[in-house]
């Protein structure tokens, strides 16, 4: 079973040289720590940065330099700053090659719910609806089940959705899956996790064909 850092590490294997990438809050943010050697990607933060760098050193933080999670950040050489409408022009206009975000639920046809629990949690969708409506390449990073042990990979989402038929790939603590023709296709197992465990934790339709390999990770 993977921890959050390992989920991020597995997603980082999907990065390609030259890509512009938007990382959501939570596990997705950790992907920046695992960019493979030899490739260059630029991270976009939807509040107005391309070329977002590491967190600042203690004492060097600047209130006027934050990411979309409101954390203090730095800029890499060659970074660019812009306003919110330009930022979403990049997103809506498909100039960003990969979006990684968290989710509360994903359905077998690729719907995603991650912004609202009616009557309980109302924080707003932020940029998530714009991202999922436009991006061609969306990877969801999340735990396979919720705190009550219930599957988050469902037939249909029970929570208000953020976008329809938009998720391409899901990396969980148990597995890597693609969404294909209205079903989850199992691609890889987390080390030590059986196909049965994944099947049991998946409520939606799961396609299992042939031998399912274990993920290759530099386990920490």
């Amino acid at each position: 079973m993977l921890n959050k850092n390992q989920i991020a590490q597995r997603i980082a294997q999907e990065l390609k040289d030259g890509w512009y990438v938007n990382l959501g809050i939570g596990i997705p943010t950790l992907v920046a720590n695992y960019v493979p050697e030899g490739i260059e990607v630029e991270f976009q933060s939807e509040n107005g940065i391309l070329g977002m760098g590491a967190f600042p050193f203690d004492g060097e933080e600047d209130a006027d330099m934050i990411n979309a999670g409101k954390q203090t950040v730095t800029l890499n050489p060659g970074a660019a700053i812009f306003d919110s409408s330009v930022s979403f022009a990049m997103i809506r206009g498909k100039h960003i090659q990969l979006t990684v975000l968290g989710a509360m639920e994903v359905s077998e046809n690729g719907d995603i719910a991650n912004w609202k629990i009616p009557g309980k949690m109302v924080k707003g969708m932020g940029g998530a609806m714009d991202l999922v409506a436009s991006a061609d390449n969306i990877i969801v990073a999340m735990m396979h089940t919720n705190k009550r042990g219930e599957s988050k990979l469902l037939k249909t989402c029970s929570l208000p959705i953020t976008g329809v038929k938009c998720v391409n790939k899901i990396v969980t603590n148990l597995a890597v899956l693609d969404i294909e023709n209205g079903a989850f296709r199992l691609l890889e197992r987390a080390p030590g996790v059986s196909v049965e465990e994944i099947q049991n934790a998946t409520e939606g339709k799961l396609i299992i064909e042939g031998d399912i390999p274990e993920m290759k990770l530099n386990m920490e």
Binding site: F55, F57, D58, E60, E61, I66, G69, T72
Partner: peptide
């Protein structure tokens, strides 16, 4: 005041 919401730093 320029308050920082999520002061996030790394150590040298």
């Amino acid at each position: 005041e320029k308050r920082i919401e999520q002061r996030t730093v790394r150590t040298k």
